[in-house]
C-alpha cells in the first residue's frame, strides 16, 4: 500500500505546558484506508491531527505528506490542500454567509479560477447531498448539515485525506449518521483516505485500522479485531469497550465462555448460536 503520511519521531510541546503533548511518535497512513484514532481526552490525538496538516509544527521530528514536509513553509499550502480537517464545532468552521460561499472559501484561497470553482462547488455539494441548500444561510442548517458542508468544502479542494477531528461529537444520532455515511461513501467510492479521531467505539470497530493513544504516545495499533481483543489495554487507555465486547465479557461471568471477542452483534449472535448448537 502507498504511504501517504509519514510521521517520524515527532514530539510536540505547547509553550504553556510543562510536559510533552506528543512524545517521540511515529506512524504511517496508507492510501485509501479508514484509520480511527481513539484515546482519552488529553491523550494528544487532536494535537496530532493539527500536526498532520501543518497547523502545528513539531518541536522535533518530521511530518511528511506525499513527500511534502510541513517544515517547509512553501510546501505547507500543498499539504493543506491535500489534507482537509473537519473540526468538532459545526458553527465555528463555517466561514461563508451561505453554503455556496462557504464551499468556495478554500477554493478562493488556493486560487482556483472562477469557472472551475463554480463547477467544483456544484459537484461537491451534490456529493454530500446538500443540493437543495446551496443558497442557505448557516443558521438555518442543522449541525449534521453544516458538517456536510464542511466536507464539501474539503472535497472541492480535491484532497487525498480527510481528517475528522471529533467531527460528530456535537451532533445528534441522525446528524452523526449523515456525516459518517457521507465520508464512508467518499472513502469507498473515491478512495479518499480517512483519519477519524473519535470517541465513538462503534465507529472505530468499523475502521480498517485503529490506533490507541495514551499520554502522547501510541499504545497500540492494528486491525479493530486485534486491538479490541485486548480489553485490559483499552481500559488502561481510559476507553470504554464496544457493546459486543462488554456483553461478551458479561456472558463469561454467567458461565457462557466464548473463545474470542466479537466485534459486532451479528458475530456475537452467530458465535453464541454455534456454541449452543454444539451443546
Amino acid at each position: 500500500m502507498k504511504e501517504l503520511i509519514t510521521v517520524n519521531n515527532v514530539s510536540f510541546q505547547y509553550p504553556s505546558e510543562e510536559n510533552l503533548t506528543l512524545a517521540d511518535l511515529s506512524l504511517s497512513v496508507y492510501k485509501g484506508e479508514w484509520l480511527a484514532i481513539v484515546g482519552h481526552n488529553g491523550s494528544g490525538k487532536s494535537t496530532l491531527a493539527k500536526l498532520l496538516n501543518g497547523l502545528l509544527l513539531p518541536t522535533s521530528g518530521e511530518v511528511k505528506v506525499e513527500n511534502y514536509t510541513t517544515a517547509n513553509e512553501k510546501e505547507l499550502w500543498e499539504i493543506r490542500r491535500r489534507v482537509g480537517i473537519v473540526f468538532q464545532n459545526p458553527d465555528n468552521q463555517f466561514v461563508g454567509t451561505s453554503v455556496r460561499d462557504d464551499v468556495a472559501f478554500g477554493l478562493e484561497n488556493f486560487g482556483v479560477p472562477r469557472d472551475e470553482m463554480i463547477e467544483r462547488i456544484e459537484t461537491s455539494i451534490a456529493r454530500v447531498n446538500m443540493q437543495g441548500f446551496i443558497e442557505s444561510e448557516p443558521h438555518h442548517l442543522s449541525g449534521g448539515q453544516k458538517q456536510r458542508v464542511a466536507i464539501a468544502g474539503i472535497i472541492a479542494q480535491k484532497p487525498s485525506i480527510i481528517i475528522l477531528d471529533e467531527a460528530t461529537s456535537m451532533l445528534d444520532p441522525m446528524g452523526r449518521k449523515e456525516v459518517i455515511d457521507t465520508v464512508k461513501q467518499l472513502n469507498e467510492e473515491e478512495g479518499i483516505t480517512v483519519i477519524s479521531i473519535t470517541h465513538d467505539l462503534e465507529e472505530a470497530v468499523r475502521a480498517d485500522r485503529v490506533i490507541v493513544m495514551k499520554q502522547g504516545a501510541i499504545l497500540t495499533t492494528g486491525s479493530p479485531r486485534e486491538v479490541f481483543q485486548n480489553e485490559a489495554l483499552l481500559l488502561d487507555a481510559g476507553l470504554d469497550l464496544p457493546f459486543s465486547l462488554k456483553l461478551g465479557l458479561a456472558l463469561r461471568d454467567y458461565g457462557v465462555s466464548l473463545k474470542e471477542q466479537h466485534l459486532t452483534q451479528e458475530e456475537l449472535v452467530d458465535a453464541l448460536w454455534t456454541l449452543k448448537s454444539a451443546d
Binding site: F243, K246, L247, A250, L251, D253, Y254, G255, V256, S257, L258, K259, L272, L275, K276, A278, D279
Partner: peptide, 20 residues
C-alpha cells in the same frame, strides 16, 4: 443493563457453563 441481558441469554445455555 448489559448484565441482565447476559443473564437472560445464559439461561438458554443450561447450567454449568460451556467452553469451546
Amino acid at each position: 443493563t448489559i448484565e441482565d441481558t447476559a443473564k437472560a441469554i445464559s439461561a438458554d445455555f443450561g447450567k454449568g457453563g460451556f467452553t469451546c
